[in-house]
Amino acid sequence: MRSGHLALSARGVQMQYRDRGTGKTLLAIENVDLDVPDGAFVSLLGPSGCGKSTFLKIVNGLLPATAGEIKLHRVAKGREDAMVFQDAALFPWYSVLDNVAYGLVCAGVSRGEARKRAVPFIDLVGLKGFDDKYPYQLSGGMQQRANLARALAVDSAILLMDEPFAALDAQTRELMQAELLRIWNAAKKTVLFVTHQIDEAVYLSDRVVVMAARPGKVIADIEIDLPRPRPLSVKRTPEFAVYEERIWRLIAGEYEHARVASQPDAAS
C-alpha cells in the first residue's frame, strides 16, 4: 500500500542541551535530514550517545528540537505517530487489556470503547488469553508485544520504535523480530525503528540510516535490497553478511576516527 508520498520528512534537525553540572552547552544531534516514505521500514542505527532515541522523542513531541523542522504526513483521524518504548513501559497497575487500551484513552476514547477496540490488537500480537494478566506476570517478550499492541491500537500512520527488543534475550529477540515483520505486513504501517544492533537493523529494514556519536549525525543511508517476506534464515545468507560487514566497517571507522582524535588528550 505505498502511495509514494513521504510519511516523515526532517530537515536540519538539531538538538543541544545544557549540562546541569558543568553549565556547558552540548550538541546531541547536529543537522539531521531524513525522509521516510509511506509504508517503509527505516532503521536508525548507531552507538549509544548518537542521539537516535532523542531524534525519536523529537518526532513524537516529547522533546523540542533546538533547530530544524519535521513534517509528518497528516492523517484523516487520530495521531500521526505512536511510540513503542524500550522496556518497563507498561503501567504495572493495569492489566494487559487496560495497558493496550491506554493509547486510545489518551486520545479521548471512553474506557469501555477503548477496551473493546484493544482486543483485536491483543490478538494480532499473539497475546490472546492474556488480557487480564498484570505486567509482572508476563515475560519480557510478552511485555513488548503488549507495548507494541498499545501503539498499534491508536492506528497511527507511523510507528516509532525505541530499541524495543534491547532488553530481551537473544532467542526471544530473534522471534520478536520475525513477529514484528509479520505484524508490519498485516498492519501496513510506516516504521521508524531505533536500534544499536546491526543484524536487527538489516533484517527488518528497507533502509538503514547509520548515525555516529558526539555530536549525533547521519553518516550513511543504506538501501537493504533483500527479498520479502524474510524468514529468519535470511540472516545466514551471504548477501546479509555483506550488508552487516559494510555497516560494521562504517561504525568501526567512526570509532577509530574518534580514538585517534582523542589520543593527544590521553597523552597529556
Binding site: A65, E69, H73
Partner: peptide, 23 residues
Amino acid sequence: TAFRVIHARARRRRHPLRRWYRG
C-alpha cells in the same frame, strides 16, 4: 494541509539571575 509540522524551539539565552533561580 498535508503535513503536521513540528517546529524547533530555539534555546533562549536567559538572564543569569533567572538561570540562578532556575537552578
